[in-house]
Design a binder for these strands. Structure first.
Lengths: 227, 227
DNA sequence: CATGCGCAAATGTGATCACAAAACGCGCCG
DNA sequence: CGGCGCGTTTTGTGATCACATTTGCGCATG
């Protein structure tokens, strides 16, 4: 609303612009599954919740729509995407294409500290499962994967993958609500073992199955099929 | 400028919004290599050239920046991307990952009419080479590939690939100016033959080599290395 | 009770403006 | 002759406003 004097002295975060704050905030909400598929958003509402005018809200939405994190109806209404089964399977196969490649590239540069960090994230993930905390489950699961892929030193490929995660965010949340998972993701241990062994083929396979297993059951049941 | 009464009766193109016109226009310019790497753009300039105010220009730029078609400096200056060698190679390997997959998916649905259309596009491509027309060369080359991939019925994967093409647009143009290609792309014939033969492995290989051959020489020479 | 009409509220779009920061150029000084 | 500083211009940002469209709800009607 008001000019919002952006903390004159401080510079810890390099003073991000208003639309960037909105962008990052919405992006995390979508990626972590805080919003269910089909959730409607309004520019004025977004602006109000981030305490900015419509202008930065519109830019953030435009950006997120370009990444597939949000959809816009013909009349400009904004909502989180409701994916068809075909689309879900397609996005899963893109993950199955990109993630083994990223993991393989990371393998050469992986060191023990990295594996240790992944194990600790995996434990947090298991706790989220036990706590039945869908958002935290998704968040730690993605963090587990991203921690590995960051080592691949392939920013463009990782960026592409993140847009895929973004598109799947609300749907992943909906899935979690459906299957009430009781056990931790079973393939993370295989990933860690392959990493320790330096086994490229096993690592690729572990990721492919982790990704497709997690999403194969995402498909909506026939009765609730969506356009 | 003025309210622009959007052709009351006509509906051939479903009356696109102003920012969409700007978006599409800029997108084509970038993807087809009409702008060299590092070309600076201004919101007011874009607005003027499309006869709209800054607002739709900003939204179009935001969208294109999200797709990697444009870059924004910390101060918000907009320009076409100047890719590092590492980035070029990474984007090439992404193409090498996605395009054989799309081609393989298209193979099952390919029919003779499709191959015929691709041959005719390929001839236009050869004419562009003979004419030394860089933009038309890039345009017909992408059209050749896209015509095939459309048959894959994998909109998400194709969308991802198009953002990669978008990022490479200006660089492809710069390359063309450097190597003064005299012969048509050599692997298109292999692609067509594999399609006719229904040979999946040969098709994948033909695409992988077409994509990497075309881009392997894109790397900037040491003397002109970029950050 | 279901259905359709119509009005009021809500919403996205684009133009315009004020402002701060950055970029640029010109002239001064060493 | 080269580098530096200062003022002008350019440029992006965000707020606000008017407007057209759409949405949604309530009421009247069959």
């Amino acid at each position: 609303m008001q000019p919002a004097v952006l903390r004159p002295g401080f510079s810890d975060p390099p003073v991000q612009s208003a639309h960037d704050r909105v962008y990052r905030g919405l992006r995390l909400q979508v990626m972590h599954g805080e919003l269910l598929p089909g959730t409607a958003l309004t520019l004025r509402g977004i602006g109000k919740s981030f305490d900015v005018s419509m202008t930065p809200a519109r830019e953030a939405v435009r950006r997120l729509t370009a990444e597939g994190a949000l959809t816009m109806s013909a009349s400009g209404r904004v909502a989180t995407p409701e994916l068809s089964n075909e689309r879900i399977e397609e996005l899963a196969s893109i993950r199955a294409l990109l993630e083994p490649e990223l993991a393989s590239r990371a393998l050469r540069r992986a060191h023990l500290a990295l594996i240790g960090r992944m194990e600790s994230i995996n434990e947090a993930n298991a706790r989220a499962v036990h706590r039945q905390d869908a958002v935290d489950y998704i968040r730690t699961n993605l963090e587990f994967h991203r921690t590995l892929y960051l080592r691949a030193q392939s920013p463009a490929m990782l960026g592409l993958l993140e847009t895929v995660w973004l598109q799947l965010g609300p749907t992943m949340r909906a899935l979690y609500a459906r299957l009430r998972r009781t056990a931790a993701p079973p393939h993370h241990r295989l990933i860690l073992e392959a990493l320790r062994a330096g086994d490229d083929a096993a690592l690729r396979l572990a990721l492919r199955t982790d990704v497709t297993q997690g999403l194969r059951h995402l498909a909506v049941y026939p009765g609730e099929a969506r356009a």
